[in-house]
Amino acid sequence: MKIEKYSDFDMMAIEVAQRIAGDLTVALHNADRAMLAVPGGTTPGPIFDDLCAADLDWSRVDVVLTDERWVPGDHPRSNTRLVRERLLVNRAASARMVPLYAETPEPEESLAGLMEAIEADLPIAVAVLGMGADMHTASLFPDSPYIAAALDAHAPILLPVRPESQPEARITLSARALNGALAKHVVFKGQDKMDALQKARTLPHVEAPIAAVLDGATVHWTE
C-alpha cells in the first residue's frame, strides 16, 4: 500500500482522475476492453467531472459500480444515477455501464444475471474505492451479518448484503473481485478517515473490511 496526501480536494480529484485515465490507457493497450469499477457517495463526483473528459477510447471501457443500493436508477440514493450524470458524459458518454440493479423486489432474484454480465469482463482493470469512518468499503460493512462470507477468498464476485446500519438492501462486489483489479485506488478526505485507515491495519478484516483490499493499493487523501 502506498499513501499519497494532497494539499486540497480539487488537486486530489484532478490527480486521481489522471491516474485512472493512465491506468485505463495501459489496460486498453493490453486488452480489447477494460473494466472500471467506481464507488458512489459524495467523494467521487468531482473525480468523475475530470475523468469524463479524459482522451481515451471510452467505447472500449465497461463501467461498473463497486456497490449499489437496491433502488431504481432514478432514485435520489442511487449510485447508478451519480455515474450516469457525472461520469458517462462528455468523452466518457460512449462507455458501457454494467448494471448492478434490476427491477425485482429483492437482489437475490436478479443476482445470477447481474453476475454473469460482470464475469464476462473480468478482471477489473481499475478499481476506485471509498472508505467510511466505520472502515467499510463498497458495501462490505463490518455490521453486515455475512461479512465473513463476503471477505472469503472463494466468495462469489457479487453478493447481496443487508447491513444493520443501512436502510435498504445492497449489492456489492466481493473482496475477491476487488482484489483481482490490476490497479486499486482508495480515495477519501478527512483526518478522521486517515485515523480509521491506520486503525484498520491493526484489526481483523471482519472488523475493518477496508483492510482486506489494501494490498497493492494507492491511498489518496486530503484533510
Rank of each mutant, 00 (worst) to 15 (best):
A212M: 03
I157N: 07
P204V: 15
L214P: 09
V26L: 11
A217G: 02
S78I: 13
R91K: 14
K189M: 08
T42W: 11
A183F: 01
G180C: 00
I20T: 07
H220R: 01
R84P: 05
G40H: 04
R162G: 08
N79D: 05
R84H: 06
S139A: 12
M1E: 04
V26Y: 09
R69V: 11
P99S: 02
L114K: 02
V38H: 05
L182S: 13
D32H: 06
A150Y: 13
Q18L: 09
R77L: 14
N179G: 02
E15L: 12
L129G: 02
T104P: 06
R60D: 03
Q18Y: 14
I124E: 00
L100D: 04
S59H: 04
H205T: 15
L173N: 04
D10F: 12
V89L: 11
T218N: 03
L173I: 04
K184R: 08
A150V: 15
Y101V: 12
E164N: 13
D57N: 09
G73W: 06
D143R: 10
L51H: 07
H154D: 14
D57R: 06
V213F: 13
P105H: 02
L140G: 11
R86M: 05
L65A: 07
A149T: 15
D121H: 14
N90Q: 12
R69C: 10
L158T: 11
V186W: 00
A95N: 04
D121I: 14
Y101P: 00
V161W: 07
H185I: 09
D67N: 12
I14F: 15
D192Q: 13
P76T: 01
M35K: 01
V161K: 01
E164D: 12
L28T: 04
S94R: 10
Q191R: 14
K199S: 15
P163A: 03
V186N: 05
A95M: 07
R69M: 08
R176C: 06
L158P: 00
G45I: 15
K199V: 14
N30I: 07
A208E: 10
A53E: 11
S59F: 02
G113I: 03
D121S: 09
R81D: 04
Y101T: 10
A120K: 07
R176A: 09
D152V: 14
V161G: 02
A153K: 15
A120H: 11
A127N: 03
H220K: 03
P107Q: 05
A175H: 11
M11K: 15
F48T: 01
C52D: 05
F188W: 03
I147A: 03
G190H: 03
D134K: 05
S165C: 08
P76S: 02
R170K: 06
S139K: 06
S174W: 11
R19L: 09
P163I: 04
Y146F: 14
Q166F: 07
T202C: 12
L111A: 03
G22R: 08
A150E: 12
R69Q: 08
I47Y: 06
M97L: 10
M131W: 00
V71K: 10
P167S: 08
A177H: 04
S174T: 08
H29M: 13
A92Q: 12
Y6T: 06
L51I: 05
K184H: 02
A212H: 13
